[in-house]
Simulated scan of single mutants.
Amino acid sequence: MSSRTDVPSCEPDLNGARELSSKQVQRHHENLRATGNPSHTQFGYGGRSVCRAFVYNAEAGFRFMRNATDIIRTVSRHTLAYMLFSISELFRLYDEFDPLDLLIVHAILNANVINVMNDPSLDQRFSSIHSVEPDVIKQGVSRAALSRFLSLPLETVRRRVTGLKRRKILAETKVGLIVTEQNAFRFGNNHELQKTNMLLLTKLLRDLRRAGVNGPDDLRGAKVAVSTKKAR
């Protein structure tokens, strides 16, 4: 009987998203055959590690998943892993900040550049890691909008925003709150975080491709399957 499981391991090198070696794959394979349980191996990298998971079948090895329900489940797994590892890196780099403050700061950052993301010319103009969006083009956001978006009490948002303004991270403009371009903590311009995100995104895209998802067209069957179930 074949046994499929998610086998966690960790990348020892953040500078290159390499595949597991054949010996590591063989070791996992033998462990699964002998015990039916995944072998867990963690390699440290500078006091931290970035974990990865892959779908492995003890009889067939790596495989592509083409079934619509398999696509839904595997996309959920890999995208959740991407989000959690991204959040983990954010918390690690800004460990002097309360997680809720970080959530508010990055919600504001996202709102500030929605107009950039929606304008292909601006998106290209500020695509480089060295091109920071100036404050004058940022789209502000209100406290009430943040409260609704994050499902947080308005008073909580107000209190946190006041503290972040005091640290000169946020500024009040005529169009709402923005994360200042010159903030001392490099929010919105943290090169280490941006480079790590590129590695995590590369891993996500690689894992989805391995699962048979190369683009949005590959998700159409999954959407149809969901719609059919709802109709019943």
Rank of each mutant, 00 (worst) to 15 (best):
R66V: 13
V224W: 04
A145W: 06
L84F: 09
N115R: 13
I137C: 02
A60W: 11
F54M: 11
L100I: 12
K138A: 00
E30N: 14
P216D: 02
C51D: 09
Q139C: 05
I104E: 00
V55K: 06
M83R: 15
L170V: 13
G36R: 13
G188R: 03
Q26W: 08
K168P: 07
N197M: 03
H28R: 13
S131K: 15
R77D: 01
T79M: 01
N110M: 11
S128H: 10
A171I: 09
N110A: 13
R4W: 11
T79D: 03
A144F: 05
R232Y: 05
L200D: 04
L150T: 08
A222E: 07
A184Q: 15
H29R: 10
L80M: 10
F62K: 14
F97N: 03
E89T: 05
R186Y: 15
S151D: 15
A231G: 02
S142C: 02
T35M: 02
G140W: 05
E89L: 06
E11T: 10
L93E: 09
P120N: 02
L164C: 03
G44V: 13
R160I: 09
R77E: 08
S127M: 05
A17Q: 10
Q139G: 01
D101M: 05
P99A: 00
F62L: 15
E11F: 15
S39C: 00
C51E: 07
N189V: 04
V213D: 00
H130M: 03
H130K: 14
T79G: 03
R52H: 12
F97G: 02
K174N: 10
A111T: 06
V25A: 05
Y56P: 01
S121I: 15
L14I: 08
V141A: 06
R166L: 03
L152H: 00
V75D: 00
H130Q: 13
D217H: 12
A145Q: 08
G36H: 08
L152C: 00
L200P: 00
R73N: 05
K165H: 12
T69L: 01
A68I: 00
N197A: 13
F64W: 06
Q26T: 07
L122T: 09
V157T: 03
N190W: 08
S227M: 10
G221A: 03
L32H: 01
H78P: 00
V136R: 13
A107G: 06
A68K: 09
V7H: 06
T5M: 04
Y56V: 01
G163E: 06
D217R: 12
E192K: 15
Q194K: 13
